[in-house]
Design a protein around this nucleic acid. Structure first.
Length: 585
DNA sequence: CGGACAAGCTGA
DNA sequence: CAGCTTGTCCGG
């Protein structure tokens, strides 16, 4: 209670004390995980306010922490005493990229800090002059999608843009980026590698090539963005927020009013949806020539009794003469069932997923549907298990080939000399090798019928990897696929070297289910998930599914609607993990 | 996140 | 009621 005659308590700060404001006050997001709030500071010792994006050190609760300037010229909230910045450490992302990062944090329902970290230089860089961006204005430029032959590196897409100004080139892996940068340099285009050349890219621009984080690169005079292998899952960050470089590239280009070119030998449905199916295709003959021969071995038609890992045809292929890589996924824990009479795989009614035996019934982990232990194709009640394992595969292979077989693991060094003529490994082996002209997929069906909505696209990506490894058909490149589903759209697309076959059919299924890109998905888990799911049930624009293993799936018509529904301010208290666009559902 | 502080529990 | 654990709040 204030006594009469006193306007305010002398121990309290006077309420009308003037607050410092104007361009000098900067807003800072501390680089402290778990802290989302931004705080206001005065510049260092009467200096000028550092530009938005700058990396600074600030005092927060008597500790010095790193942070980013997220705004300048702000009006601080009343009643707080501002402290000066401890120091300005380094240049950081440009102001437009800070805004883009804010958009991404919202779009993928995560924090801003991790995104700004991806957009920041790997080591200290002196402050740079702030340059105005070229003035096309948002809306101009636009997105285009180009389907390439597997042996086309996409250099032709970069050259015309590079004449206009700086170009960001995004590849799924840094290794590919380094390779491409070398090729561009030999062609006389001054390519820089992100993040290694961050300072020179930021000050002088040029063609900046890198993995997914290059989409945040700071460049003067951006003229366009090229995303190579836009279908590749490595373009998505695996930690929260799980931003996807393809989507960030599209948004960055839109904001800057410059073209965004997406390219891939097997375009994603997501990219096709972005361009309304307007895809630039190579000439049929050139595309076909870029793929290896794809040969299917239908294991249903083999004589009954055979249930080994290797068909007679594959046994023959393995005997040589050339180097052979046999690929087996370690998802072999899931035992597949096939009909002992007709050889068909036991699948769900829509034939999209495998079923397994549980409690004397067939059940699908993907859809939950169940039926008695009977073949849906021929009615036979005799089913058999197809068991798989890398070690056994290696032993059987050695016996077949009559020579030593090398087992490849994730630890095998990339680019190493082939340890044997016959190799066996998991999918990871496809990334590590060169100099193999035949790849054999021993169990493609597990991949094709996996309980994931993107299983088809993922299987196609795997075939593309193999195609790049073997090289085109004219050079002897060959892929052999053992399967019990030779009519699967992925395999037909590969055999005809026409990825359009897959996307056309896949789009129908996806659209019917309202799955991405014809809807947006998020997975929520953790102690607070039940409460949030409960709240989201009230939103008629959302579909709430689950819980399965403590996880809920939330579906919305658009990513925007989903992001708005999952805003932190809308969340009930409790530990919660939100995963927008989960790739493995 | 990590420190500060309050409220709650335990044992003498 | 000291001494400790657990929970909640807050930072400029």
């Amino acid at each position: 209670m204030t006594e009469p005659g006193r306007l305010f308590d002398p121990d309290e700060p006077p309420p009308l004390r003037p607050q410092p404001a104007g361009p000098a006050v900067v807003r800072v997001l501390p680089d402290v995980s778990g802290l989302e709030k931004e705080f206001d500071y005065l510049p260092v010792a009467d200096g000028e306010a550092p530009p938005v994006g700058s990396l600074v050190r600030v005092e927060l609760q008597r500790r010095t922490v790193a942070g980013w300037v997220t705004a300048t010229g702000v009006t601080p909230p009343p009643g707080v005493t501002l402290q000066p910045l401890v120091k300005v450490t380094s240049a950081g992302p440009s102001p437009d990229v800070v805004e883009l990062a804010r958009w991404a944090a919202h779009r993928w329902s995560g924090r801003l800090g991790p995104v700004l970290r991806a957009a920041s230089p790997p080591r200290q860089v002196p402050l740079l002059p702030e340059l105005g961006q070229r003035g096309n204005g948002p809306g101009l430029g636009g997105v285009s999608l180009v389907r390439l032959a597997p042996d086309d590196e996409g250099v032709g897409l970069i050259e015309p843009l590079a004449r206009q100004g700086s170009v960001l080139v995004i590849t799924p892996r840094l290794g590919a980026a380094g390779h491409l940068a070398g090729r561009l340099r030999r062609l006389g285009l001054g390519a820089r590698l992100h993040p290694r050349d961050w300072p020179t890219s930021a000050s002088r621009g040029g063609v900046v090539v890198g993995a997914r984080s290059a989409v945040w690169a700071r460049v003067p005079d951006l003229a366009g963005i090229v995303v190579l292998d836009e279908h590749d899952e490595s373009l998505q960050e695996e930690r929260n927020p799980t931003w996807h470089a393809r989507d960030v590239a599209v948004e960055r280009a839109r904001r800057a009013g410059v073209p965004c070119v997406l390219a891939s030998p097997c375009p994603s449905l997501a990219a096709l949806a972005l361009v309304g199916d307007a895809v630039h295709k190579p000439a049929r003959s050139a595309e076909r020539a870029g793929w290896p021969v794809v040969e299917l071995v239908d294991r249903r038609t083999e004589e009954p009794g055979r249930s080994g890992l290797f068909s007679p045809r594959v046994a023959n292929v393995v005997r040589g003469p050339g180097p052979v890589l046999c690929v087996l996924n370690r998802t072999g824990r899931a035992v597949m069932l096939s009909c002992a009479v007709c050889g068909e795989l036991v699948r769900t009614e829509d034939r999209e997923h495998l079923m397994v035996e549980r409690d004397g019934q067939l059940v699908s982990p993907a859809t939950g549907e169940s039926r008695p232990l009977v073949c849906a194709v021929c009615g036979a009640a005799k089913l058999k298990r197809l068991r798989l394992g890398v070690t056994r595969a290696a032993e059987e292979l050695a016996a077949l080939a009559g020579e030593p077989v090398a087992e490849l693991t994730a630890a095998t060094r990339p680019g190493a000399r082939l340890p044997a003529r016959v190799l066996v490994g998991t999918e990871a082996a496809l990334h590590q090798l060169g100099g193999v002209d035949t790849v054999v997929f021993l169990d493609m069906d597990a991949e094709l019928l996996a309980p994931r909505y993107r299983a088809g696209e993922q299987a196609m990506a795997l075939l593309l990897h193999a195609a790049r490894l073997t090289g085109p058909r004219a050079g002897g490149g060959r892929i052999v696929v053992q399967t019990r589903t030779p009519d699967h759209r992925v395999l037909r697309a590969a055999v005809h070297a026409d990825p359009g076959i897959l996307t056309r059919e896949e789009a129908v299924v996806r659209r019917a289910m309202g799955l991405p890109p014809y809807g947006a998905l998020a997975e929520i888990s953790g102690a607070g998930a039940d409460a949030l799911a409960d709240r989201l049930l009230a939103d008629p624009g959302l579909t709430v599914m689950g819980p399965r293993n403590g996880r809920w799936l939330i579906r919305a018509d658009t990513p925007d609607h989903l992001a708005d529904a999952l805003r932190p301010s809308e969340r009930p208290p409790g530990r919660l993990r939100v995963h927008v666009d989960p790739p493995r559902v």
